[in-house]
């Protein structure tokens, strides 16, 4: 039945070439842990993506309850964490997943670095990967404020103060992040917008570029 459904769609949209490009590609022996156990280092990229998907899904559920304003933000997180069924688990996934995604991405970066996989012709993919790294750090920084507890508040205050000490453009960065002169109502709403719309949008675009390039170029050969 699936085959006839596939054929029906394929006849109209000619998706087979697309499908072949996306999914039907070889996995060479030297990256397959089933053949060489040490090849598990090649799993970190996939795991990073896996955790990123968890982050996106759990984040989507969190926004069902989260309210980005200074009166209700903390109360909504409190309610979500302690009253909503499985809310604590979903928030836990998002909280610890944020750390785990950094760890996995870090290991993936080290693998790519120490296997020299960033060398020609894959320079652009390395640069895009580093941009993904910075976007992830930005997501970590903006997401830290959202629970609106003391830890969130003062860490953000210090973080923005550090950004403000940059010469010439520092005050502008500070004002952009604060949305005023202090960490307040404006800061929370704009961190929420950056965390939920701007950075994930950029992240998805970068991930698409990252995967497109690896599909085009294939995995770097054995050492």
């Amino acid at each position: 039945m699936f085959k006839s459904m596939y054929n029906w769609i394929d006849e109209r949209l000619d998706i087979t070439p697309l499908w072949r490009d996306v999914a039907d590609h070889e996995v060479p022996e030297h990256v397959n842990p089933a053949h060489h156990f040490s090849a598990f280092v090649y799993c970190f990229g996939g795991l990073t993506f896996f955790i990123t998907v968890i982050q996106i899904l759990s984040g989507m559920f969190l926004t069902m309850y989260y309210v980005p304003d200074i009166i209700n933000a903390y109360a909504s997180v409190d309610y979500l964490n302690h009253k909503v069924a499985f809310g604590g688990i979903v928030r836990g996934m998002h909280h610890f997943g944020a750390s785990l995604v950094i760890v996995m991405m870090f290991l993936h970066t080290l693998r790519v670095f120490f296997t020299g996989s960033y060398k020609a012709p894959r320079e652009m993919n390395w640069v895009v990967g580093m941009l993904i790294f910075f976007i992830m750090l930005g997501l970590g920084f903006t997401g830290y404020l959202l629970p609106w507890d003391n830890k969130a508040y003062f860490a953000t205050k210090v973080g923005v103060q550090i950004a403000e000490s940059v010469p010439y453009i520092g005050p502008y960065i500070g004002e952009f992040l604060y949305g005023g002169d202090i960490v307040g109502a404006q800061t929370l709403t704009r961190f929420f917008a950056i965390h939920v719309f701007f950075l994930p949008g950029a992240l998805i675009a970068m991930l698409a570029a990252h995967f497109l390039m690896i599909r085009k170029q294939g995995i770097s050969g054995p050492l």
């Binding site: 903390y74 964490n81 610890f96 750390s99 830290y144 830890k151």
Partner: peptide
């Protein structure tokens, strides 16, 4: 483990020791 949650942000709290997330 459970995700940590402290007390609501109080800008007048001068004693709080700020702490970024571990990767910063």
């Amino acid at each position: 483990e459970g995700a940590p949650l402290g007390y609501p942000a109080d800008p007048t709290n001068a004693a709080f020791i700020p702490m970024p997330d571990w990767y910063f």
